[in-house]
Design a protein around this nucleic acid. Structure first.
Lengths: 220, 220
DNA sequence: TTATGCATTAATGTATACACAAATGGATAC
DNA sequence: GTATCCATTTGTGTATACATTAATGCATAA
């Protein structure tokens, strides 16, 4: 397989370990420890950590090691606020872009898959399709920087969702919203696309923040 | 001056060189060249470059050196779209936060300074105060991540503005908008704060993009 | 017991060395 | 003249070594 460097490998392995919880939020790790774990020297580990730091996944603090960023309810509120604005903008832009039905196939598929998953009570599959929907929505907005910012924020959300997914009410309203957004984009109605998605995200934020607050998930 | 590391120095010197144009957009620079220029080894230069890359100021391409990111009109459109949404959100949040007149002193001062600068025909002073206004506005919105994203985007705008500042119409409408935003925040009217600022930024975007397009400033 | 200072420990920041791979240029074949 | 191949050059990716400096713990004094 391809010419993948140690830095790339470090980034992807560390990401996996962070998302899986193997490196728990709030925990500290020396560069040399991680280097040994990953089977490489400190140099690529440092560079990887620098990248992950830029994405808010870790914090490098001199002499105290690399800390896996905690995710508090307050953090989630910040993040959802940003996601709400940027995704809604993407939805509006997508509606302006005059996409054909074919262009929107991926988006439609994601919605169908969410329905199916919901019917089968498969929350993991639902979450995966939900991710897919939002990723595609942003892509259709055609703003590379926006996509990047959103993807960084979504990474953080994913960490919190790992825990809350099974505690929250079934996301049935959610799918109705997705459908409306899809329709607005297909009908080239930017304002509706924007407003529906905006409300959708605000509701999601309130639900998640309440959940995190209630269960005091500080740091995890 | 204290315990500043070489990496920090590299970041700040490179930033200065990028903003001043000493390292022109689109130019390539080997790690070893920059290391020599900065009087340090490649290691801290690499780490600095990695950070600047995360902020979109440079791109590291194996064997082709560190490229100073070009700034095209299309890039500016993307960036302004993001700024428009996020700053408007910050304005709304600031209006919700119930700040006292004292809390808003910095914001008010920035507006006054812009007026003064405009009267004296000092566009550099105007740009500085304008920056200050927007930075303070975002700070009042109390969203650390949003502040960070906005500041990264504003860095890019600053690069483009260096060239366009003296070509564009005098920003008189601009100040009127700022005053309205200030008032809306003081009067705790989130919707007005949001909408006025939103319109303000959209107008700025259209003006800037048109200018860049007209003068074909691709890469600078 | 609590606080202060000092010696020790240990993690980081940085320099350096080197292997590998990609780009370059020149020579050869067509 | 153009294309192909090979040797050379050169930049990067990574390992390693080491000095610096912050944290730690212990001893001593109040």
């Amino acid at each position: 397989m391809g010419a993948t460097t140690n830095v790339e490998r470090a980034v992807s392995v560390l990401r996996r370990m962070i998302f899986s919880g193997e490196l728990p939020p709030g925990s500290d790790h020396l560069e040399s420890e991680l280097a040994e774990t990953l089977g490489m020297s400190r140099t690529p580990v440092r560079e990887a950590a620098l990248m992950l730091q830029a994405q808010g996944l870790v914090e490098m603090r001199p002499r105290r090691g690399i800390r896996i960023s905690p995710v508090s309810a307050a953090d989630m509120a910040e993040i959802y606020d940003i996601l709400t604005e940027l995704e809604s903008l993407a939805a509006a832009r997508a509606a302006e872009a005059e996409y054909s039905k074919a262009d929107l196939a991926t988006l439609a598929a994601a919605i169908t898959d969410m329905d199916t998953a919901l019917g089968a009570d498969d929350l993991r599959a639902w979450a995966e399709a939900d991710d897919r929907f939002h990723r595609e929505l942003v892509r259709l907005g055609r703003n590379a920087r926006l996509s990047m910012v959103v993807s960084v924020m979504r990474d953080q959300v994913r960490r919190a969702r790992a825990m809350t997914l099974f505690m929250r009410p079934k996301p049935t309203q959610s799918n109705e919203d997705h459908r409306k957004v899809y329709q607005a984009i297909a009908e080239r109605d930017p304002k509706t696309a924007h407003d529906v998605h905006h409300a959708h995200r605000e509701a999601a934020r309130d639900m998640l923040v309440a959940l995190l607050d209630k269960h005091q998930f500080y740091g995890f």
